[in-house]
Structure formats: C-alpha cells, structure tokens
Design a protein around this nucleic acid. Sequence first.
DNA 1: TTGAAAGCGCTAACAT
DNA 2: ATGTTAGCGCTTTCAA
Lengths: 355, 355
Amino acid sequence: MLFNNGFRLSRTTHLTNSSKRPLTLRDVSEASGVSEMTVSRVLRNKGDVSAATRQKVQDAAKKLGYVPNKIAGALASQRVNLVAVIIPSLGNMVFPEVLSGISETLEGTELQPVVGVTDYLPEKEEKVLFEMLSWRPSGVIIAGLEHSEASAAMLQQAGIPVVEIMDVDGEPVDHCVGISHRRAGRKMAEAIIAQGYKRIGFMGTKMPLDHRARKRFEGFTRTLAKSGIEIADQEFYSGGSALAKGREMTEKMMARTPDLDFLYYSNDMIGAGGLLYLLEQGIDVPGKIGIAGFNGVELLDGLPRQLATMDACRRDIGVKAAEIVAALNSGQEVPEGPVVTLSPTLAVGETLRRK
Amino acid sequence: MLFNNGFRLSRTTHLTNSSKRPLTLRDVSEASGVSEMTVSRVLRNKGDVSAATRQKVQDAAKKLGYVPNKIAGALASQRVNLVAVIIPSLGNMVFPEVLSGISETLEGTELQPVVGVTDYLPEKEEKVLFEMLSWRPSGVIIAGLEHSEASAAMLQQAGIPVVEIMDVDGEPVDHCVGISHRRAGRKMAEAIIAQGYKRIGFMGTKMPLDHRARKRFEGFTRTLAKSGIEIADQEFYSGGSALAKGREMTEKMMARTPDLDFLYYSNDMIGAGGLLYLLEQGIDVPGKIGIAGFNGVELLDGLPRQLATMDACRRDIGVKAAEIVAALNSGQEVPEGPVVTLSPTLAVGETLRRK
DNA sequence: TTGAAAGCGCTAACAT
DNA sequence: ATGTTAGCGCTTTCAA
C-alpha cells in the first residue's frame, strides 16, 4: 500500500462522503450555489431552468455522488412510481416470463415493477400485499382471482388500479387479464377425444391452492364426461424435480393401468419427464399412447418429440396487465373493458396425433 | 342482488373509505380516541401501552382497514427495512434459487428483499442500482464483482452493507460470498483429464458480460494446457431454448469434429440437450464420449443419464449473503471476514466415467 | 403510560 | 427563471 501521510486506508475507507450521512438536496444546493428548489427541478427535469444553472447543478450532483431520496420525494409529492407485482412463485418459469412482459412494458413509462412472492399461500399473500400496499404503489398486478377476504378488502380499499392476472374464470376486483383455464382444459379434452383416445390418465400437482390447475382439471373432466369418458387413472405429486416426478408417476401409472392410451399432464415439465420415460421404454408415442402437457414452455423445443401443449400466453398477459396499469395511471380509459380474455392456442406437436 | 335502500352497489363501490383518500394515523386516532403517538406505538409494538388502549387501537385500525404509510415512517425514522438484491436475470433458474435462499433467511429478520434485474448489462445495473439506492435500503446484495466505475462508486458511497455474490475471483467492495469459478473450471478439467479424455470440445453462451462463465472457461483451458491439451473445438450460442441449442450445437460439432471424446457445456441446460441428442444417435455416453455441464440444476434428476456437473452452491450463497447483511444491519461482526468462499462439489454422475 | 412539538428531505403552490 | 413557504404522515424526543 502506498505511503499515505498517516491516514489509514482500507477497503472500507470511503474517500468521499466519509461522513456517512447521506447527501441531501441542500448539499447539492450549497455546492452549486443554486437554491434547493431549483436543484430539485433540475434533477427531475421539471419546470424551466436555464442551461447554465442546469449545468452547474448537474456537475455538483455528479461530483458529490448525490442520490436523491425517493422516500422524501414520494412523501412530498404523494406519488410513488412503483407497481406491486404479486405472484405465487419464481421457480415456475411461468412467472418470470409474465414478469418480463411486465417490466418490458413498464420500461416505456415512469413506472417500476416490484415483485412479491406468495408461495401459493393465502396467508403469505395477505402479508406480502399488506407490506407492498404500505409503500403506496401506483398499482397492483396480482396473480389469480382467489384471495382471502382480507386480501380482497385491501385490494378494494387501496384506491389504485388493480389487475388480476392469469385467470379469467371468476369475479375480478377491478381489472383482469388472462385465459380461461376451464376452457383450456375443455379444449384439450376435445382435441384428445377428436383423435379417438379413450383410456385417459391424468397427472398433476397436489396443490389444492393452485386454482388454475384445478380449473383446467375441471374443464377437462367435465368435457370428457360429456362424451361418456371418465379419467381412467390419476396421480398427484408435490415437491422435487418435476422432470423426475413426471418420469416416476408415468412409470407407476403405466404399471398400474397398462391399457391407457393417453396421458394428460398438468404442466409441461412433468409431461417432458413422462415423454422421456415412454421413449426410453420403446413405447410408441403417439401411436400406442398419446401425451400432452400445459404451458408451452420454451424448454420443449429441445425434446426428442415435440410435446403437445397449450400456450398460456404468459408474456402477453404481463404486457397487457402492465399496459392497463400504465393507462389507468395516466388517467386513460381501458378500451377493452375490465376483463381481457386471451386465447391459448393448442400446439398439437407430435404427441397428440394418432398415426 | 339484495335490496339496498337506494344505494347503488357495484363491484367498484367501496363500502368503507370510499373517499379514496388513504387512511392516516390520525383517522385511527380519531376513531379510537387515542393520541396519534400512542396509536403509532401500538401499531409498531413499541413502548409501553396499556392492554386496554392497545385493544381499542387495534380494533379501530382493523375496522377502518388502515394500512400504515411506510414512506412517512421511513422518512421520519430514517430506517428502511429493505435489502436491494440485484441479479442479472430471472430466466436462468440459478438466480431464483439464490433468491429463495435470501428470502428464507431474511424471513427471520425484519428485513425484506427487493429484486432488481440487470439483463447482464452494466448500464442497466447502474440504473437499477441508482434507483434502488434512492429508496435508501438497509443493504445491497449484488451479483458479480465486475461493476462499472459509477456503480462501484455508488456501492462505495452508499454507507450500507454491500455483499457481492456468486463469485470470489476479484476485489469486493465490501463483503463477498461465492465460489471461485476459475477453480471450478480447473476442477472439472482435472476430473476430465483424470479419466483419460483428450479430445475436448466446449460449448457455451456468447456472453462477453457473463464474467463467471468466462472465468470458468479460463480456468478450464489453462488447466488443460498444463497437460498439453488444447480445446479441440468450441461453439457459442445466444438466445433461444437452451435445451434445443445444446442439441443443435452438439450435432454441428460432432459433424465437424467427429473424433471428440468429451464435451464440456457451460451450463446444464445445454448439456442436457447435448445428452439427449447423443443418446438419440445411439452414441455411447460416456463410453465413446463423455459430457459434463455446470450448475447442478434440479432438472437433471429426470434425465435418462445423470449428467456430470458441478454444484454452484446457489442456495447457500443466498443464505450466507442474507446472514451477512442481517448481521451487519444489527451491528454485529461477520466472523468469517469479508470474503466467504464456498466449495462447489463435483457430481460425477454417469457421464464422466470411462467405462 | 400518554401526549405535544419538532422535523425527516423533499415537492406543490405560490411568490417574485 | 428562480426563490419562499408550507406541509406530506409519520417517529423522535422530551415533557407530563
């Protein structure tokens, strides 16, 4: 280390602002010889400021390393450019994709997304929602239409735009963007029936709180029932690697009910596991047995066979929800009305076509 | 709908607080007949308040649906219980896992994580960091040791605990938790050499800004060089489904350089794609050709063969980083010192063992 | 155990 | 184009 005139330098020594007190507008004001108010205007590009003054202020702010205090700004202006985004999980890939749709769209505005995760637990949703609302965000985007009474009340009372996403089968508090999962289940059932499959097995998560999976299942079984078909076997899992679970469950089910001719998986990941297992066993897919998943995840592109699936419009949902919050926030109307229903497309792939 | 005495009820009618003005402490104070100050004390469980008063206040707060204003609270108390977590991406799975380690650990404290995403872009990192610091968080957890000068300066000046994560090959601003990616590359090279593989191909992302992948590659090639081995072929990709890319790249590389006896993939997802391709082609893995990836993702459990990989200690990194921030935040020392180096373990699996 | 006063750092509204 | 004043809704501090 260089000789330093008796000052101890270490990794934790701050050469500037070593006082530790965060800088304030006043510091910039004094350093630039411009009033606090004008400094504030420059830093926010608000109001008319002469080029010369602007320059002085910007130089001073940069030299000092001033970072504005949004807390104070928000309190004074009564505006917080944050959008609370509340989702069940980040591990599901579905939600990061929704998020990317949201952040990309908000990028064009002054709004910023802030994410909260509920782990599919209503109590946690309540906590997270309360926490986020206490920062007085400009809007809320929240997954699902099912909320505890307390959560629903908070959304109600918040007095800000609320967009419930992913699902449209229910009563939204305010606005809502998603697909009908009941209809998705029905469509898949229809496609399967149309191909002449009759002995159908179902595999899914053991999550009573995943309402969307439940609704798909309902739509699916009801439609089968109309054609006089009943689920021949079913299996539920929780936790662990979805790919491995799909493999295991498929093995178990095929051993138990060997005459199945179709397997419907509640998500693509377990569907992929099942596919890999069946191919390994030398079973003809979809000749002997057809399969399908749900979500249309990018992962599928790399599988040995293209898995039949149904796109859940994840990105689009994010984009649309963000657009609605942004519009509402700038006082505009939402022409589509309170409920925006997107249509999932069936990707027949190579595993849902009788040879 | 029920008869309602002339009041129009609709989805947007708020039965309480229809005034739209967010409730304040004062409202609770008036409703409960207790001073604002005492209401504040009750709501924060601070100071001595008689049971009777406490009850009155809580009842009033609940009945009104009061949500405290953290903005005002933070400004007055000069404390914000937020920890800024800055990561390159949410699509990578690695980062959600780190996040879950962080949030789980912070759950036991009064701190809350807030996530920002940089897309591996230094300019965006700067923006996100500035934005987050302007909310005056209690700490920062940020991925990587490479930052722009401006970012480094901000971290320096912030005057709050900073933990750089994932990587330890470099100079941290403050604290740091991660693995040595150079060493990870070296270890993998050693394992491959030990098994007698000699004609080695490499596949990875085309991301000059993914410093950790770069360091692994460096450690890998240098170690090979010491044994007189040079990478026989290499291929880089960007975008698209990693699984599909792994498949494509492997096909291309095997066509171009058929005598390869080992393929090292910079991540497990492309490794899985390569594995699926090779098995489909009836190529003996690892007899004819060995393969390995990096990360130890859960996904691998469901593959036909267990892919050799190296665990990046993602969860542990999150846990440790959060512990450090929490400790520093409550004025405690961090016994481990500023740099915590975790050791990734090699999972030999079934694809790195000569028969 | 409770209350009153002051002020956190900024911005809206109003001067000048 | 720039400055002044008065809060934003809480918490800190001090007094009762």
